[in-house]
Amino acid sequence: MLRFLIGIGLPFLGVIGALPWVAAQQDRYVLGVPFIYAWIFGWFLLTSACLFICWHCFDRHRYANEH
C-alpha cells in the first residue's frame, strides 16, 4: 500500500491536486521562471525520485528473481 502511495499518490497529488494553488501564484517567479512552470519542472525530478524510492525500498526485494 505504501508503495502505491509513494509511487502514484504523491506525484498525482503534487501535479493535479495542487494545481489550483499553484495556478493562483501568478506573480511569483523562481529563478526567473514563472512559478507554475517551476513547479511542474520540479516534479520531473520528484516523480523520478518517488519511483526510485518504490524500487529501492520495496520492489527490488519483492521482485528480486525477475529480470
Binding site: 509511487g7 514563472p34 516534479w43
Partner: peptide, 21 residues
C-alpha cells in the same frame, strides 16, 4: 500560455508512475 503547457507536461509525467505499476 501555461494553460496549455501544464496539461501537456502533466499528463506525460503522470503516465510514468502508472507505467511503473
Amino acid at each position: 500560455g501555461p494553460t496549455y503547457g501544464v496539461w501537456f507536461l502533466g499528463y506525460i509525467l503522470l503516465a510514468y508512475p502508472i507505467g511503473y505499476f
